[in-house]
């Protein structure tokens, strides 16, 4: 009996190879897109046809079904970016760079949507589109950090070097975000009477939770799908840059 002692690639190593990653995750895109679409349709149906108005917020509670998931994603995407940054700095995982770069514009977009829906909810509830309340203010600062990261990526020509510098900045930002949140909360309670309505104040009955959960999964799966697609594009773009350089040198392909 012969023993097979050829080294096997662990799933981790297999994921680390961009080509393998492409081959492995490409079949996932279409099913993911399908499930996401179905969840969105279901969520919209629940949100508009199969859920009651809140006894306190009235029909504006329906804005929460798009606001809460985007607000969650604005923080989740940053957490994903920070984990990828660790992957870049500690393990030098080649896909961590790609994932970090793909996530930044997605996070910025979801944060902008969270701010937009928040202000659409704030106008009927608070009577103003913008309130300097702790939550909205720290989300705005988070948006600035996202946009700064996107700008930093674009400023570098060499993407490998950019990845490491952006990773350092992302981690410093991750340390700072809780401090910013704390300071902004401190500041806004100082400047305002405590009469501001708190979004998480009243506990929601189950009939309102169902659309919220469906929408929550729809948005999260959408992020996963777009992140995978953007990572594929980034891997291909790097291959393209190498090929173009080789072609420019006049090598045969």
């Amino acid at each position: 009996m012969s023993i097979d002692d050829t080294p096997k690639m662990s799933w981790w190593n297999r994921l680390a190879h961009p080509g393998q990653f492409l081959a492995w995750t490409r079949p996932l895109i279409w099913p993911l897109a399908g499930v996401t679409t179905a969840l969105y349709l279901l969520g919209l149906w629940f949100a508009f046809f199969n859920s009651p108005a809140d006894y306190q917020m009235g029909d504006t509670v329906r804005i929460m079904y798009v606001h809460v998931p985007t607000a969650w994603l604005s923080q989740f995407v940053y957490a994903a970016m920070a984990v990828s940054a660790l992957g870049t700095l500690v393990w030098r995982h080649p896909l961590a760079d790609v994932s970090m770069k793909a996530a930044a514009p997605l996070g910025a977009a979801f944060t902008a949507m969270a701010l937009f829906t928040g202000s659409m909810w704030g106008r009927p509830t608070w009577g103003t589109f913008w309130e300097w309340d702790g939550r909205m203010t720290s989300t705005l600062i988070l948006l600035f950090i996202y946009l700064g990261i996107v700008a930093l990526w674009r400023a570098f020509d060499d993407q490998l070097r950019a990845a490491r510098v952006v990773a350092v900045f992302t981690l410093v930002g991750a340390v700072n975000v809780p401090i910013i949140k704390f300071s902004v909360d401190w500041w806004s309670t100082l400047h305002q009477p405590a009469s501001v309505f708190r979004a998480d104040g009243p506990t929601m009955p189950g009939s309102l939770l169902t659309p919220l959960f469906v929408m929550f999964f729809a948005f999260t799966l959408l992020f996963v799908t777009l992140q995978l697609l953007a990572m594929h594009t980034e891997i291909r773009r790097r291959r393209l840059v190498t090929l173009e350089r080789r072609a420019a040198r006049g090598d045969t392909l």
Binding site: F49, G58, D59, T60, R62, I63, V66, F116, T117, M120
Partner: peptide
């Protein structure tokens, strides 16, 4: 269903998010 007095804001929020 009828969306009550703040229908335009609810509609704008959903439209904005889906356009985005």
């Amino acid at each position: 269903i009828a969306l009550g007095e703040h229908a335009e804001f609810i509609f704008a929020a959903y439209a904005g998010v889906f356009v985005g």
